[in-house]
């Protein structure tokens, strides 16, 4: 009865949604102080710390740029990827 209603989370169940991206967030590690505000606000949960640096999973980052907006150090800039 419930099979069609219930879904369980898994990575990439809708494919590589990073392909939807128009703007790519790029972190300037010189400016970044690892406050993790970007990670807190990321709606896709694709920002984490690896080797003491912010790491973005570009396979699934849709490029909404909320991270750029919330970054107090202005350490994230956007690069146009397509078109």
């Amino acid at each position: 009865m419930l099979d069609p209603l219930i879904s369980h989370p898994k990575v990439g169940s809708a494919g590589k949604t990073g392909e939807w991206r128009v703007f790519k967030p790029i972190v300037d590690h010189e400016l970044c102080v690892l406050c993790l505000e970007c990670s807190e606000y990321c709606p896709e949960n694709v920002i984490e710390v690896r080797d003491d640096k912010i790491w973005i999973d570009y396979d699934y980052c849709k490029g909404c740029l909320i991270c750029k907006n919330v970054c107090k150090m202005k350490a994230i800039k956007a690069e146009r990827e397509f078109y």
Partner: peptide, 28 residues
């Protein structure tokens, strides 16, 4: 009831469905 959603529930209800999910749900 058949199921509950609580803070520790690790599933999504009524996510966007493709293929036969809606057909199956309605039929059942």
């Amino acid at each position: 009831q058949a199921y509950k959603i609580l803070p520790n529930s690790e599933f999504a209800l009524n996510a966007v469905t493709v293929n036969d999910a809606r057909h199956k749900a309605r039929k059942t």
